[in-house]
Write a protein that binds this DNA or RNA. Structure first.
Lengths: 198, 198
DNA sequence: GTCGGTTTATGACTCAAATCATAAAGCAAA
DNA sequence: TTTGCTTTATGATTTGAGTCATAAACCGAC
């Protein structure tokens, strides 16, 4: 999102996290801009009885957690390392300075926020009013269309566990497993040793 | 969001719509920036069997429908006039010119997008994993905290119909009616001739 | 190779919200 | 003040996803 040179010239630090590490918690006050160098990070909420909802999964070059930075609000969700990862970390004042000085960066931020808003609009409509199979197909197609999914000879391989799909769509694992099988039967997707292809 | 002077100096037009008018449709290509002068506009989706999901309701001074403008994507939802209203309408190229020339405006856009993203994060987590009463209370509290809700002696009056609350939370009207009554019984809210107060 | 943890799988059962039906109350316009 | 439409209300019934239980398949570490 923001180039390495620009980040480093503004004294961004590199910081390593190991799988499972909590980068920040829901309810905390944001103080930093984060951008992924390597690895994956998820933002998620846990409801009263521990069930998880995944707001999004982020990959290298993507940033996360900026919105409340601009609003002086508390984080609405947790950020957790999905795998070992390395991040650029830039303090809030330096980050704001950076975007004020650089029109291109602020345009990039706008596009980034617009993109996430688009995803959330699409999924919110799905989650609130569509059946499990429909929701899952939308998630899969959205992932293919807008995320980094390499096409193989069997089709696009969806690199999400059933549990992750469940947490992204607000369903239970068992429901996802059953819906995925139903979709295979309808020839909407293929399952090749447990991986979903489309 | 963007000042009247700035909009008019960039040749924005004023356009009137009457209650129920469709301002743009899901699937269309965005060509304009819209900002409300008076009245209210909702953005919503309709699922396969006609059920509505309300993405958001927008009031005077607020803009809507920009995200896909920045992404060259199709509108993910419909925009419909909730009441008679008047809007500023600015063509895409002129709008992009305006924000490029004006750092303050682009910062305002960022804040606006961040705000909507925050709302969507909160509601997505609710809708996907909380009970009806919890969802409704969150919607109500969010509305009070972040939208224009005047405090009266009975508390904050929530100016949403039961149907709108249903369409905002992904519930059915009957469920909302019952949950609202349950919340009254628990003294979380008051109902004074059918209006909800908190 | 074996062990332990994760992921996928499947059946039986439950239950809360959706659905369906019906009507009262409120409100705006004729 | 009557008419027609919207909004709120309430009971009965259905249903599909959630829950619970159990296990097989897979995978990485030792």
């Amino acid at each position: 999102m923001i180039t390495e040179e620009l980040l480093e010239s503004h004294q961004a630090l590199r910081k390593k996290y190991t799988k499972g590490d909590i980068i920040f918690r829901e309810g905390e006050l944001p103080n930093h801009y984060f951008q992924i160098i390597s690895g994956e990070v998820k933002m998620c909420n846990f409801n009263d009885d521990g069930r998880e909802f995944i707001q999004g999964i982020f990959s290298p070059k993507q940033s996360f957690g900026e919105p409340p930075l601009f609003l002086n609000r508390l984080y609405p969700a947790n950020a957790i390392a999905v795998s070992d990862c390395e991040l650029f970390v830039l303090s809030k004042p330096l980050f704001l300075k950076l975007i004020n000085e650089n029109a291109l960066v602020s345009m990039a931020i706008i596009e980034n926020l617009a993109q996430r808003l688009h995803y959330k609009s699409v999924m919110a409509a799905e989650i609130s009013s569509q059946e499990p199979e429909h929701r899952l197909l939308k998630l899969i197609d959205y992932s293919i269309r807008f995320f980094k999914i390499e096409k193989e000879k069997e089709g696009h391989r969806i690199d999400l566990t059933r549990q992750q799909m469940a947490d992204l769509t607000g369903l239970r694992v068992e429901t996802v497993i059953r819906a995925i099988k139903a979709l295979e039967k309808k020839n909407e997707i293929k399952i090749i040793n447990r991986k979903v292809f489309r």
